[in-house]
Amino acid sequence: MSIQHFRVALIPFFAAFCLPVFAHPETLVKVKDAEDQLGARVGYIELDLNSGKILESFRPEERFPMMSTFKVLLCGAVLSRVDAGQEQLGRRIHYSQNDLVEYSPVTEKHLTDGMTVRELCSAAITMSDNTAANLLLTTIGGPKELTAFLHNMGDHVTRLDRWEPELNEAIPNDERDTTMPAAMATTLRKLLTGELLTLASRQQLIDWMEADKVAGPLLRSALPAGWFIADKSGASERGSRGIIAALGPDGKPSRIVVIYTTGSQATMDERNRQIAEIGASLIKHW
């Protein structure tokens, strides 16, 4: 067993022997300050990975656009099909120029040879490739089937209704393509630590998230040396920005953090900075 597999395998073990964890309200002060700075709603939740206990939250049951954070859930659904023998990570999918949508930095380079399901999930999570996400959605039956998968997991909140890039419209009070911080955190925890996926698939999912290449300005920018993070960011219209992450010190994840914001007129750089500052406060008061 590799060191990485050993780390994931021990998560349920540590759950039975973990020391108590305590929240620090200073982080919530920073979350509220971020709302003021951005002139927008901010949703935040911090969940103990082992016990599932909510350590701190702000607007945990308000809806926010999922943006590209849905791609982790999508690849979780794909992996569940792999575990059930209904899909193969090595299966090659061919597509055409007509399938390409905006922001497809990986898939646009493989029009001649296609990409495997594994490569598409990697592109969707690590590079947030939109065409990769659409091709993967097709393999499971579309957005409604992803919503059904989540319902079967016990998540009756999170929903995907449209494809890339339309799902990023982020219209106020529109429940399409939205989640709540509490629902997303719970669902992510189930995918990473529960029995829904095999150990190999849980490890694959967290490996893809750990290799995320487009979330550098967010929580990763505040991460001390030696800390672990596996994450997925998202951005969409109407000043929306978000990130879902499993992180912790000593090279292993111990908490789930979900941050969403929407309705801001601030620049992308400012939205990134506010999320990074929330992360810095979280780490300082860990």
Rank of each mutant, 00 (worst) to 15 (best):
L135R: 02
I3F: 15
R176C: 06
L74V: 06
L219S: 01
T187M: 05
F13I: 09
D250V: 06
L218R: 03
M67N: 15
I54Y: 10
L137M: 09
L10C: 12
T262L: 08
L55A: 02
L135G: 01
G90E: 14
G248A: 00
D207I: 09
D99P: 02
P65S: 05
G263I: 07
P165E: 02
Q265E: 14
L79Y: 00
A16G: 15
R271I: 15
D113P: 05
W286L: 09
A148C: 11
S254Q: 12
L146R: 02
P12D: 07
S254T: 11
L73M: 08
R91S: 04
A200R: 14
R7L: 06
K252R: 11
P60A: 15
E175H: 11
A215V: 01
L89T: 03
I45S: 04
I140F: 07
L223C: 09
L146P: 00
D99K: 09
H94L: 13
A15N: 06
S57M: 10
F6C: 10
A266E: 06
Q203S: 08
A246Y: 08
N130S: 04
V72L: 01
G90M: 09
E46G: 01
T138G: 15
L10R: 09
A183C: 07
G194R: 07
C75I: 09
F149C: 05
E102G: 05
F64Y: 03
E35Q: 04
F70I: 03
A211T: 09
A15R: 02
M153V: 08
C121A: 07
P249N: 03
D269S: 12
Y44S: 00
G239C: 03
P25E: 08
V117I: 10
W163D: 05
I244V: 14
L55F: 08
D36E: 15
Q97A: 14
A16S: 14
I125C: 06
D269E: 14
K252I: 14
A9V: 10
G242T: 00
V117G: 00
P253R: 04
A148D: 15
R92P: 08
H94C: 06
P20S: 12
D83A: 02
L111P: 08
D36C: 14
K252C: 11
D250Q: 12
E56Q: 06
K144M: 10
D231V: 02
P60G: 14
M127W: 15
N152Y: 06
S80W: 12
N50E: 13
L167C: 10
V8R: 14
L79N: 01
I11Q: 05
K32W: 09
R81S: 10
